[in-house]
Design a protein around this nucleic acid. Structure first.
Length: 989
RNA sequence: GCCCGAGUGGCGGAACUGGUAUACGCGCACGACUUAAAAUCGUGUCUCGUAAGGGAUGUGGGUUCGAUUCCCACCUCGGGCACCA
């Protein structure tokens, strides 16, 4: 039985001893921790003043959402990490800002209010009180005088104010947009509230609904948000996440001419009812369709065009579309599609051809069909794509379903792609773009006569069939060109992976394209190691549909054929990288190079209650009118019911007293905007408010911002779950404020790190329903805050997900107790004798390690090295007071209470947390004697103690004295000796 | 599918720019103290072998005097994005 299991007996340690007779004061964490928490608050130890001279440091953590569940152990992990950093900075002489506040608007509180009828303000008050108390019990060095709360009108006044500035600059606008709609609850849902296509609360399938929403034009900042990531020090994966979200991609915008059936060259069927002058009706703006592509180099393989169903051209072309009813039906169908259906459909694509019109591929003047399909997004690019089924998976599956032509247009040049690296695939996967490979453009009119001339391959010169064979053979691949039945087939099956290769061969056998007797695929080693070219059975190929062959080609991804060669019109692009080809081709056909972003404007309103009211008035005469700044804040009124109305409007909409107002411009009748802001609004700028939290005239004074934000927040740590949206949104707001010259920097955070999650025991998520949550309160009561802090930092690498293990906490507690006992050993020493040189070396090494480890957030190794030091102290006969104090100082950021207590017990008057961070002595971290490992041929055969920095000659001499080493050297000639100073000597025989 | 990250004892995890693999902690075993237990302290704890010695850092190769670390291929797990042309 473990004594610590008993919560009612928090201090299990009754009596501990040192030496043989002296009784010690017991370590009562409850008493000590409470005492110092009160003391620090009384002395305002962690409160900072603006404008103090000297170095300053702003450390930030994500302010918590005060949920009813109370503080989570995960909060403690991230808060402690920054607490350690800020405490170290304070001891290093910085003026440190480490603030805290509450991100208190949000759905859980609102849902609770709906359920219980208790006002959200009251719920928030209760929850923040609990959180505050809990945070204080852990001993964080927050400056509580700067506490902010997003739901406080004095705070959200400025959230509204910033919104108004955005409105004035045209960045905030109201527009119709697609939202998730729950037909049962009759509310719009945030994406996070939709789980698997169902409403989180009632389980009803959600649909899309077009609704008017307030939007913020974050897309106008897309470029800067992407570019400026180069300026900041974020974890690489965070940058990747941001870049991924912004989704910058450079491509080409290309116009495809549209023609009507009268002008079709290949289709002889004419529409009988067509008016002769129909062509004139197609206006100049709509006689082409503009597509966006990143792969303009594959344009010779573009065999059809696809428009998003919502594309404006579809409606414009209505008179020319002969199957309009069908088209219309499809558009309606897509619009009403439920989310759940879309998910269930997965990759099965649907679409309808726009009959009666065609497009001209500007690269080769071929007529291609035009389709609408919902796999093309209206919101990205131009809402239209050129489909290249041979080189794009989505186009491929669509083409296959509707029997559209598939035309291959590129293949990599065999051989070497870069100087050192051999090209990995004999024939590349078509879809992938080889990173640095040069292309061979092929653009075959299938089964034509052989053309004699191939496009230039290496040096741009034309070469013959024989020439191309040479190229292949040079690179080590066997080739076989077959000339028969009027066309030539060159085919190559090869894949370095045996499994894939074998599958390929068996597929071919199944298709009866190769003779299974020739290729004994069942035998392990036959054919599988070598690169083998196969010749298709020509006769069979003719019989088989050519489409099938192409299908197979794409499916396998490793099988290519060149029939009658390379078209002259694409041949000129041969031997270019895809980037070069894209640019050249785009230019030639009159397209332009453009940059597009995935990022979309931020839906900035919600229809429910618990958020900041959007400070806008709708006037019948004047339209949308912003609330005058002097009337801010627009207070969130009290309501009777927090439920949304039947029509899905905010509950605010039924309070006519609040809604009905007068227009600030004309004084006429007007209505207030009833939408509120989303959860992310208040958290987009809170770090600025901390600089000057009580300011009534500005969101923060220039002076305060110039002081704390001169470079931006120095270090911001938070969860991985917030590194895309929250980080992006706040960077956007900050840049906007920077443009208004209201903040001194263009980026809010200089450095951003992220902590790993804490899972419950067994690696599963902590959840109330499973009942595996850990309440920090219990741990603090039983083991103490210092132990909890040490434990959470020791549990594993800070940036990684870890599992909670209550059994392991005891180790951290034991460490704390050892420190406690050692302190008595120090204070009871009669004469303050010097510590041994060995102990001093360990101490200084530890100081160095802790100093560095905190900077890299390697808290787990920092603690382990302190444990090593304490173990050394236990063994030591004497510990000089000053040495022990240095140790206390490096431990202080981790365990602030016990170190403060011991510090005081040792006679210090000033707080340890205001003392100066100890410096390690370079001379003292050098061991006098070092252990050298002796190896013979890389195997360890002995070890020896040598003086530090012994030279090679001497080391060799010493090593050759070792008996065991000599045994291994007997009768052998020493060829070489490798000596690494202070580490190893390796004798090669 | 794509993009990251990670695979080391019974467990959480260490290992600097390639240089004694398993630090530190948990657990376990034995011992000291104790009437006894707890706590504390000490010793041991990858594996085969009596030993000398050999084998182990997901798997298979490579570079090197020497590889957990570098290179290549593959397997497994975790996270993020997901029709973004």
């Amino acid at each position: 039985m473990k004594i610590y299991d008993n919560k009612k007996n928090p201090s299990a340690i009754k009596k501990t001893r040192v030496g043989k007779e002296k009784k010690l004061k017991e370590y009562n964490h409850l008493k000590i921790e409470h005492k110092w928490q009160v003391e620090w608050e009384k002395k305002k130890l962690y409160e900072v003043k603006n404008g103090t001279k000297g170095k300053r440091f702003y450390g930030l953590i994500e302010f918590p959402y005060p949920s009813g569940a109370g503080l989570h152990v995960g909060h403690i992990r991230s808060n402690t990490a920054m607490d350690i950093i800020t405490r170290k900075r304070r001891m290093e002489g910085y003026n440190v800002l480490y603030p805290i506040g509450w991100d208190a608007f949000g759905l859980p509180t609102e849902n609770y209010a709906i359920k219980t009828g208790i006002q959200p303000e009251k719920v928030t008050k209760i929850n923040t009180d609990v959180f505050r108390k809990q945070l204080k019990s852990i001993g964080f060095g927050f400056d509580w005088s700067r506490e902010v709360n997003t739901t406080d009108p004095a705070y959200y006044k400025w959230t509204q104010w910033i919104f108004l500035q955005m409105y004035k600059k045209g960045l905030a606008y109201k527009a119709k947009t697609n939202i998730n709609w729950c037909p049962s609850c009759k509310i719009g849902l945030a994406n996070e509230e939709v789980v698997g296509g169902e409403c989180e609360r009632c389980g009803t399938e959600t649909t899309k609904k077009v609704k008017e929403q307030w939007m913020l034009a974050i897309t106008k900042y897309a470029d800067r948000l992407d570019r400026d990531l180069d300026k900041v020090d974020y974890l690489e994966k965070i940058k990747v996440g941001q870049r991924n979200w912004i989704g910058k991609s450079e491509g080409s915008q290309i116009k495809f001419k549209i023609i009507t059936s009268g002008n079709f060259s290949s289709d002889p069927r004419m529409r009988e009812d067509e008016e002769p002058d129909h062509l004139e009706n197609i206006s100049t703006q709509s006689d082409f369709v503009e597509v966006f592509t990143t792969r303009a180099d594959t344009i010779f393989g573009a065999t059809y065009i696809v428009l998003a169903p919502e594309h404006e051209l579809v409606a414009k072309l209505k008179p020319q579309i002969t199957n309009w009813n069908e088209v219309k039906e499809y558009i309606t169908e897509v619009k009403d599609k439920k989310d759940i259906e879309r998910i269930a459909e997965e990759k099965e694509k649907t679409g309808v051809e726009l009959k009666g019109i065609k497009a001209i591929n500007p690269a080769n003047n071929e007529e291609i069909s035009i389709w609408i399909a919902d796999y093309v997004l209206a919101t990205y690019g131009t809402g239209a794509v050129m489909a290249v089924p041979a080189h794009d998976e989505r186009d491929y599956s669509f083409a296959k379903k509707y029997g559209l032509p598939i035309k291959q247009s590129i293949m990599p040049v065999y051989g070497k792609s870069t100087e050192n690296e051999e090209f990995r695939y004999a024939v590349s996967a078509f879809v992938r773009r080889p990173s640095d490979g040069k292309y061979l453009f092929i653009n075959s009119k299938q089964f034509n006569k052989i053309s004699k001339v191939y496009g230039g391959i290496e040096k741009g010169e034309s070469i013959t069939e024989a020439g191309i064979r040479e190229v292949f053979e040079e690179t080590g691949y066997k080739t076989k060109l077959v000339r028969d039945l009027g066309f030539s087939i060159q085919s190559h099956f090869y894949h370095p992976d045996k499994k894939i290769y074998r599958k390929l061969v068996s597929e071919l056998v199944e298709l009866e394209l190769v003779d299974d007797k020739k290729y004994e695929i069942d035998q392990e080693e036959v054919l599988l190691h070598e690169e083998i070219w196969m010749t298709l059975d020509e006769a069979k190929l003719v019989i088989s549909e050519k489409k099938e062959l192409h299908d197979f080609e794409i499916l396998s991804g490793k099988f290519c054929f060149i029939d009658d060669g390379i078209l002259s019109n694409s041949g000129e692009y041969n031997n270019l990288s895809s980037e070069e080809a894209r640019e050249k081709i785009t230019k030639k056909i009159g397209g332009k190079i453009v940059t597009k972003y995935k990022l979309r404007d931020w839906v900035f309103s919600r229809q429910r209650y618990w958020g900041e009211p959007i400070p806008i008035i709708h006037c019948d005469k004047c339209g949308i009118v912003p609330v005058p700044e002097k009337d801010l804040p627009v207070l969130l009124p009290k309501v009777k019911s927090y439920k949304p109305t039947d029509s899905g409007e905010s509950p605010l909409s039924i309070i006519s007293k609040w809604v009905n107002t007068t227009c600030p411009t004309c004084g006429g009748k007007a209505k207030r905007e009833t939408d509120t802001m989303p959860n992310w609004a208040g958290s987009s700028w809170y770090y600025l408010r901390y600089a000057d939290p009580k300011n009534k005239k500005e969101f923060a004074s220039k002076k305060a911002l110039n002081y704390w934000m001169a470079d931006g927040v120095n270090w911001y740590n938070g969860g991985m779950e917030h590194v895309t949206l929250h980080l992006l949104y706040s960077r956007f707001w900050h840049k906007f404020l920077y443009d208004l010259k209201l903040v001194p920097t263009s980026e809010p955070y200089i450095k951003r790190t992220a902590h790993g999650m804490i899972l419950a025991e067994g690696g599963v998520k902590m959840s109330k329903s499973i009942g595996n949550t850990i309440d920090p309160k219990d741990i603090v009561a039983t083991y103490g805050a210092d132990t909890l802090r040490i434990y959470e930092m020791f549990i594993g690498p800070f940036d990684q997900t870890v599992s909670w293990s209550t059994d392991s906490i005891i180790g951290s507690r034991r460490f704390i107790e050892k420190v406690w006992r050692q302190s008595f050993k120090v204070s009871l020493q009669k004469d303050n004798k010097k510590s041994s040189p060995q102990l001093i070396t360990v101490l200084h090494k530890t100081i160095k390690k802790i100093t560095e480890d905190i900077e890299s957030m390697s808290y787990n190794t920092a603690i382990s090295s302190m444990m090593v030091l304490v173990n050394e102290m236990e063994k030591a006969e004497n510990i000089e007071k000053k040495d022990f104090k240095m140790f206390l100082q490096i431990l202080a950021p981790f365990a602030p209470h016990i170190t403060e207590e011991i510090w005081a017990n040792l006679g210090e008057k000033k707080s340890i947390h205001k003392s100066n961070w100890p410096k390690w002595d370079k001379k003292k971290i050098v061991d006098e004697m070092v252990k050298i490992i002796i190896q013979v041929n890389g195997k360890i055969r002995g070890e020896m103690m040598l003086e530090n920095n012994t030279d090679e000659e001497k080391a060799k001499k010493e090593a050759l004295k070792n008996k065991n080493v000599l045994i291994w050297l007997e009768g052998k000639e020493i060829k070489r000796v490798i000596y690494v100073k202070n580490r190893i000597i390796n004798i090669v025989v």
